[in-house]
Design a protein around this nucleic acid. Structure first.
Lengths: 152, 152
DNA sequence: TTATAAAAGGATAAATTTGTCCTTAATTAT
DNA sequence: ATAATTAAGGACAAATTTATCCTTTTATAA
């Protein structure tokens, strides 16, 4: 469905939104641990998300790290996918045809259309903040460990 | 969404189902042309589909080629995905978590659940035959060319 | 003002997916 | 039988994605 890049981008952003604020920034080590992802690769992906503070904000140096502004928290999940250029899922033809469209549909176009629409809505109508809120009230997980990893 | 492998598998199977019968088998050249796919790679993928006549049937030698039996035509689209081991889309977590489940949901689990269910239904309730029928009545396409390619 | 801590960035490597080519095996027309 | 035709299969190559490592830049604490 999504590439590893997109998966890590989503997980990292949600994690940072959950635990990070402007005066409690998260380091890349904590983020990668928190979401069970390869550290350096995640750092690379965060670079995409932090360009022009697009989705994630960051500062270097001591006490630096990653966090989300209030503006960013209101962004739709789609903004994360945009940042990593992974919007294909909600734009492409299921069969991979370049020319597939309403006027030139593939054999699955009609059936798939409805699903694509819902996917689109999921990504556009859901804000990062909403996911964080849900995580806060429910008992939701964003990594593969049963219990939070111990700090060493 | 789907890998190239899965896309070609779907296109090829639908194309063969449309144009091929036991006594009018299609050669790999025609299939690849018909669906705009790389020939050798498509041949490889068809090998997966023809194992034990799983989805596509084939015979070698003169007048050989690919076709679908009546039994195969009744198979759900999912059978094609199974043959190329591409069922992840309808089983995996959107965020790529190994442990994501009803009892241990990720932050998008609830919203995504409904979509996954529909995708699953699309692949399970739609038979290859149905897609062929639709293609026959409507003006549907399975390649990128406006008009069918000329035979040389 | 210097040392330290952090992200940014570049180069490279590993793994996977996608794609090609050539040989082999099977079928059938001649 | 033999030659021609076709899919099957194996080895390899190219491209892309995923991942790592090292250096540079930036910020701040001491």
């Amino acid at each position: 469905m999504l590439s590893k890049t997109a998966e890590y981008a989503l997980r990292a952003t949600i994690y940072i939104a959950q635990k990070g604020t402007e005066d409690n920034k998260l380091g890349i080590d904590e983020v990668a641990e928190g979401i069970d992802s390869p550290k350096s690769f995640t750092a690379k992906i965060l670079q995409l998300l932090t360009q022009n503070d697009r989705v994630v904000s960051s500062v270097r140096g001591r006490n630096g790290g990653f966090y989300l502004t209030d503006r960013a928290r209101k962004l739709p999940v789609r903004a994360i996918l945009e940042a990593v250029e992974e919007e294909e899922v909600i734009t492409k033809c299921v069969l991979g045809l370049k020319e597939c469209s309403e006027t030139r549909p593939c054999p699955m176009h009609l059936q798939y259309k409805a699903i694509k629409k819902q996917l689109k809505q999921l990504f556009e109508k859901t804000s990062i903040q909403q996911l964080v809120e849900e995580s806060n009230k429910g008992n939701l997980f964003i990594n593969n460990q049963k219990a939070p990893k111990k700090r060493s």
